[in-house]
Design a protein around this nucleic acid. Structure first.
Length: 175
DNA sequence: TGTGTGATTCACT
DNA sequence: GTGAATCACACAG
């Protein structure tokens, strides 16, 4: 759930990926705390928003207590409220494809670095709510990473049309 | 319809 | 200097 100015936008999270701390080579926290990933080491339930690939934002929710790194990357959302707002941000007219990717949903919900470190439990601007349970959870390897691929820590709603990739991501290895 | 590649900023080495 | 938890468009078939 995202509140921006007076417009309320909400969606059901249908796809996430788990990232751990210093024992996870794909995690930003791997190798210790830095300026960028410091909120991953902070309190749980906070937003870790980071900039990647030169032009995209990604939203995470921290999961571990202070001093321990861990976060969940929100990869896809099924739009529920404020769909006009999202379409305006994304310059799209169709519902499918609006928020089916980590950078797409941040753009649709107007999330950027200003919300980094936001407390998603008490914040009026960006917060989580208990929603309905998902239909069927499937897991696969994580997407878009080059290390730590062996852990199947991507979880998504197999019955939703709003996940970023339907098929498990099997990355081709060179012979 | 499917694959390939360019875009583009930041943090870390 | 380089690579990164990505997306959208161009081109081929």
């Amino acid at each position: 759930m995202r509140v921006h100015n007076r417009s309320r936008s909400a969606g059901i999270i249908v796809e996430v990926e788990a990232y751990r701390g210093e024992d996870d080579p794909a995690s930003h926290a791997y190798g210790g705390m830095t300026e960028r990933n410091r909120v991953m080491f902070g309190e749980e339930g906070h937003a870790y928003v980071y900039f990647t690939m030169g032009m995209h934002w990604c939203l995470n929710v921290t999961t571990e207590k202070v001093g321990k790194a861990g976060a969940v990357l929100i990869r896809a959302v099924e739009p529920m409220e404020g769909i006009d707002f999202m379409m305006k941000n994304r310059k799209m007219r169709r519902l499918v494809g609006l928020t089916d990717g980590p950078a797409k949903l941040t753009q649709a919900l107007a999330i950027d670095g200003e919300l980094n470190g936001e407390d998603m439990v008490s914040s009026p601007r960006l917060f989580l709510e208990r929603g309905r349970t998902v239909r069927g959870v499937a897991s696969s390897s994580r997407v878009g990473i080059s290390r730590g691929v062996e852990f199947e820590w991507r979880f998504f709603d197999a019955g939703s049309k709003f996940v970023s990739k339907k098929m498990p991501a099997v990355r081709a290895q060179n012979p």
